[in-house]
Design a protein around this nucleic acid. Structure first.
Lengths: 265, 265
DNA sequence: TATCATTGTTCCATTATTTGGAACTTAATT
DNA sequence: AATTAAGTTCCAAATAATGGAACAATGATA
């Protein structure tokens, strides 16, 4: 249902809103538009209830109902997201430094933030080829098998980290994906010590990265930046060398935030 | 508050969800993160009520609350949008044709869809410069002063069109922006006859475009594609010539939809 | 074409959630 | 320290959501 094997859904108790968000998650995570009956089976709710809920979501533009009675994510979500992205302070401050890093290495640079158990990518800077927008931006990826994710986890206080790891369900994307909290925890402690993380083809075979953690002082944003590329071009030795520029860029981003947002944060 | 002078908000009666969406609109349309008291003034609700509503929105990740007590759009919106965009059938089918059109003309090509009184841009294909993602995609623009918007309006049945125009409030972005329903209606009738529309620097001074309408058979998508560029490079004569390739591309997109989605739609 | 099965929609008494005023806590200001 | 403003919690009353069942529309089958 979700290419990442992860869901953003969390059965929180937010009353009416919470129930509706579960539905929205259901439809947006599906691979294709869903029929009423499909959703009925997935949601396990009385028909009348479900029908009214879907109607409300459609009326608000969060879902769309086509001529064949299939529900798809609504375009109003795009408008919300465009605004959310355009004014995100963290991203705005980071952007020039991501570009510099891309220029210096010639490889793709990412910026991601931890939200729940997922990393949400806020920006991506590639080389020449025109970026397919949204290709990566906005995507939620697992935190336990991405460089940015592990870098972000290394920022958590011990207790929160253990709690988060306890709630993870591991999917083995490649042969080197972590599949237990123990080995992951060990690596995260190491990352916390050295200040940078690798992705050794753990999410996608043939793809490696080096990442460094970045955070805002109020801990609203805990994430990382990474340099990503094909394993044949990025030897582990090269990635070790690049751990320096990534960390430097991360430092400059955090300095930028202090200047721009004031010392209070 | 909104750079377009437009709002996507519509005071529908969707109970609890509707009220929460008004709040979400408020925060996402603001130019900067808002404090509790700011929202209190704007929303005009009792403090207790507002507080709980905001808490729910934050718990669901639709809003975020930073260390200074300021509310900003939540990043979960990005995840939703990324999914909404990645699988949008209309966009997927249109994409190769947009590229062709961009190649043929060398100018920027847009795909937009009518939603309420706004055009939501689904895609944008530019020339060499790496696209700043979300730069245009997802943005909601007024329908009455954009090429895509007027092309989309030309698809509406007479009655719906009149209703929609009656509800518009016109903002004079440039000297040539339509500021009355009468002149706009006249032009839209003309557009419906000839099958293509111009934007004669009506939204932004110095920017012109030619657009052609595109729609799905079930009328779920009523929008258009356009070629846009600076007035000094795009003479009205050239735009008249380009009305042919835009219409051809529009035709191919619609043909593609019929093939891909089956004859039933 | 008539019949049956499936899918989707509406209704309304019951149940649960939201509401909003006020009391309360905390932070900022004089 | 006193005062004001900002943010949070509480609970009886008002409102909205629920879910079972009846109803309608669609589509498949004989």
């Amino acid at each position: 249902m979700n290419s990442n094997g992860e869901s953003t859904a969390q059965a929180r108790e937010t009353g009416t809103l919470g129930k509706l968000m579960v539905l929205l998650d259901l439809v947006t995570h599906a691979d294709a538009p869903l029929r009423f009956t499909d959703i009925l089976a997935l949601a396990g709710q009385p028909r009348g209830t479900l029908h009214r809920q879907l109607t409300h979501l459609v009326e608000e533009g969060l879902l769309e109902l086509d001529g064949d009675g299939r529900y798809a994510p609504g375009l109003r979500l795009l408008d919300f997201a465009a605004r959310s992205w355009a004014r995100n302070e963290f991203r705005l401050i980071a952007e020039p430094h991501l570009r510099d890093l891309q220029q210096a290495t010639g490889e793709t640079v990412h910026l991601g933030v931890l939200r729940g158990q997922s990393i949400i990518y806020l920006d991506k800077v590639e080389g020449r080829q025109p970026v397919r927008m949204y290709s990566q931006i906005g995507n939620a990826s697992p935190c336990y098998c991405t460089g940015v994710g592990k870098a972000a986890l290394s920022l958590l206080p011990a207790e929160s980290l253990v709690d988060l790891l306890a709630g993870l369900s591991f999917t083995s994307f490649t042969a080197s994906t972590h599949i237990s909290a123990e080995t992951l925890l060990a690596e995260i402690r190491e990352i916390a010590d050295q200040g940078y993380a690798f992705d050794r083809e753990e999410h996608e075979a043939g793809i490696r990265c080096v990442a460094a953690p970045v955070w805002s002082e109020d801990r609203t944003f805990m994430g990382g930046i990474s340099i990503t590329g094909p394993a044949y071009r990025l030897s582990m030795e090269l990635l070790h060398q690049w751990s320096v520029p990534v960390q430097l860029a991360a430092g400059r981003i955090m300095e930028g935030m202090r200047i721009r947002l004031g010392p209070r944060r």
